[in-house]
């Protein structure tokens, strides 16, 4: 019987991983066949590329003590969005003023739009994310200590 053969295959949990990976691969192929997909031009948090800026392409924007405009989903829910502007460490301040290459590293200048999204407008995402890290760490350290 074909059904009993299928159930025998599924009953071994070593086989579930290849099955799932195969399903993913199949779905990705279907995805390729369904291309092209339309790209919506009206996006939230649009990105401006300014080639002359030394912070480009990771220019998070905003000048100190002013308020940047942020296109968020529900602006009324985040009345204080836009006050956190990007900041440079003394070293990256020096690099930004002398070279054109500071923008090639993502960690050089935190703050700005990224902090607004991560802490403020989409703060819940960032709460869930360290929770996942926390849980994974708890599993790892529990197993490590038990030995």
């Amino acid at each position: 019987m074909i059904i009993s053969r299928i159930s025998a295959f599924i009953s071994d949990f070593e086989n579930l991983m290849p099955l799932f990976a195969g399903a993913c691969a199949l779905l990705f192929i279907i995805g390729i066949l369904m291309l092209p997909l339309p790209y919506e031009e009206k996006q939230l948090y649009p990105k401006q590329i300014n080639r002359s800026s030394t912070l480009d392409p990771y220019d998070r924007g905003g000048s100190p003590f002013t308020r940047a405009t942020i296109i968020s989903q529900y602006p009324q829910n985040s009345p204080t969005a836009g006050y956190v502007t990007t900041y440079l460490t003394p070293l990256s301040w020096f690099l930004a003023n002398t070279t054109q290459h500071l923008g090639t590293t993502i960690v050089a200048h935190p703050g700005g739009i990224l902090d607004e999204i991560l802490y403020n407008t989409r703060g819940l995402d960032t709460v869930v994310e360290p929770t996942i890290l926390f849980i994974a760490f708890a599993i790892g350290s529990y197993l490590f200590r038990r030995g």
């Binding site: 579930l16 991983m17 790209y39 919506e40 031009e41 009206k42 996006q43 939230l44 989903q73």
Partner: peptide, 29 residues
């Protein structure tokens, strides 16, 4: 371990799906 691998592989279509929703509609809400 085997389940963990499937769970980790499952995040790929999950995040992929969410990103395609955002790209084609311009919103995640």
């Amino acid at each position: 371990f085997q389940y963990g691998i499937v769970a980790l592989a499952g995040t790929v279509p999950l995040f992929g799906g969410a990103a395609i929703v955002a790209a084609t509609n311009g919103t995640l809400s």
